[in-house]
Amino acid sequence: MVKKKILDNNALYTIIAILIGFVAGAIVLALAGINPATTYGKLFDSIFGQTKYLVYSVVYGVPLIFAGLGVAFSFRTGVFNIGAEGQFVVGALVSCVLGIKLDLPAVIHVPLCILAAAAAGALWSMIAGVMKVKRGINEVLSFIMLNWIAFYLSNYVVNLKGIKADGKEATVDILESARILFPKEILTATGCKSFNYGIILAVAAAIAIWFIINKTTLGYELRSVGFNRFAATYGGINANAAILKAMAISGAMAGLGGAMQILGNQMRIAQFASQEGYGFQGITVALIAGSNPIGCIISGLFYGAMKYGGQKLSLVGAPKEVLDIIMGTIVIFIALSHILKKLLSGRGK
């Protein structure tokens, strides 16, 4: 019962933070001479106006759920996976290349692309993990470095012969057999060309992550190291090994996010001009969810909807950057709420 109360409280704080985010966005809009009511009206309409919009919002949410799961999982183990961005990119890249280059029946092709992306993400994250564990190099630094390496690696691969599409700054499309789109009937019925199995996988992944954290000995290990690595070590847990495992799983999630984006929605990778930010958005998703994997589904969908709906804001003359302000404010206030809660619980009533 007590537990439930606290949960409710958390949700309450989150909702308040979200409201404050929208208020902040409105203030900025008003200051810029744009009518906030019209803007938010447009935003709302662009998400809920038609079934198609809603479905697209879900499609946009899927990779963010995965990125969020990766970051949330790392938080629970006391590591800050700021490298989800890079892991996402290598996951996308590997699934894209395999999707183009292999010619297999779908039942093999799809799982292969997905698993390879997970492995690539895990590996990318483990590089930072090994450097941390073996050499004591702060993971935040190596993560940021790896993000850029992934960025340039992707741009390099995109331009390779046999992968690059003629006359475009992008790869050719992946083969039909690698795509994870829902059957034609569903696509026509919903009006969304990119509706895919990703959402089912995302929910399954969130449940799996929740299960790992709370119900398995592995989760026990990882949490104990995250909370107090001294006591964990004292209790016989190998803290370094636990950190590596956590980083691998975290990276795998981000890598899967990349695969979902390619196999379910984009079908190709374009040359990047700047970092796309899925990994960073994953941090926001994890924070809004309070690092709760099930919460990541909701916050991932929320962010996805904002991203999708936000694209149409220019129609009413509002810059889509206002969404960054809203999301940023939400994150700040959620962070503040943790401090606030500490103060309140210390003081009692």
Partner: peptide, 13 residues
């Protein structure tokens, strides 16, 4: 508090 307990874990854990 450093070695003996994980303060954020429940007593059972």
């Amino acid at each position: 508090q450093k070695h003996g307990l994980v303060l954020d874990f429940t007593v059972a854990e």
